[in-house]
Design a protein around this nucleic acid. Sequence first.
DNA 1: AACACGTGGAG
DNA 2: TCTCCAAGTGT
Length: 314
Amino acid sequence: MLQQTQVETVIPYYERWLNKYPTVNSVASEKIDKLLKIWEGLGYYSRCRNFHEATKEIIKSHNGVIPNQFGVFKSLKGVGNYIAGAVMSIAFNQPYVAIDGNQQRVIARVLGIKNLTQRNRKRLSLYLSQLVNYGNSGDINQALMDLGSSICKPRKVDCTHCPFRLTCKAHKFNDPLGYPIIIAKQKIPTKRFAAMLIRHKDNIFINKRAESGLLGGLWELPNVEIHNGSKSKTLLKEKLGCRFGCEVKVGPKLGAISHAFTHFKMNIDLFDGQLKINPKLKTGEKWVAFSDIDQYAFSKANHKLFELVDVSNG
DNA sequence: AACACGTGGAG
DNA sequence: TCTCCAAGTGT
């Protein structure tokens, strides 16, 4: 849950999750749709799917016991170097490093590392290995992460309160923020979409996204991407008509929302719509009562669409 | 190696 | 409003 996500954001999700799924087996034996509903709003939904897979693997191949060897634990889905190191050191008191963004930045400054090349990452890791080899590896990992999140921040430092102040190279050079060099981000594109609110009595039509990829396994209002200047209404009528195998009547525009992901921005126009006949529902397509919408996991963008029309009140 | 992958906090 | 970035991992 903590992957690229601030601790404060995670806490309520973590508590809800542990309250509902306190054991490995309770996760492994649950349906992914239920897990995604608990995860809804946290983002990076593949983490949820990976965790589900990891628990199933623990039941299937490890007798339900969480592996306490680095290599075995790291082989679980969604577990990389950081998580494996964090669990080995914090949970099992083994001398492994757990290099998150904080530790990387702190040690890069201490060692005066400008460029995070592969070679310099190894220097950094070696330095940390020596630290954790003295013992208390879990506490050391925790402490360095906390140092990075509280006083050795990316764009603001408080060197006078830093335990490394006497030896830190970046501090000595009087340029802590210059270490490591921050790689400029490239601009992200903006994409246009048109979505449709298809009503039938007290139901609306929703469909499930593909299990993998962006927002995998979440539900959404039917939508199409609008490329270079084509007309939203025309595209909705054509593409959704083709998908449902029946004529689609596109009504008035109900509103618009925008939403930002890490790698692109999105503008969505929402249209009212009707299907001329009831289509034969395929897998992942559903009519859902307004009152039952909260049973399904939707992305934040979809909730913004719902807010446009206040579906909960019809 | 580079890019995909969500959302919200903070300045 | 805009930009950066957060307890990274998979492909």
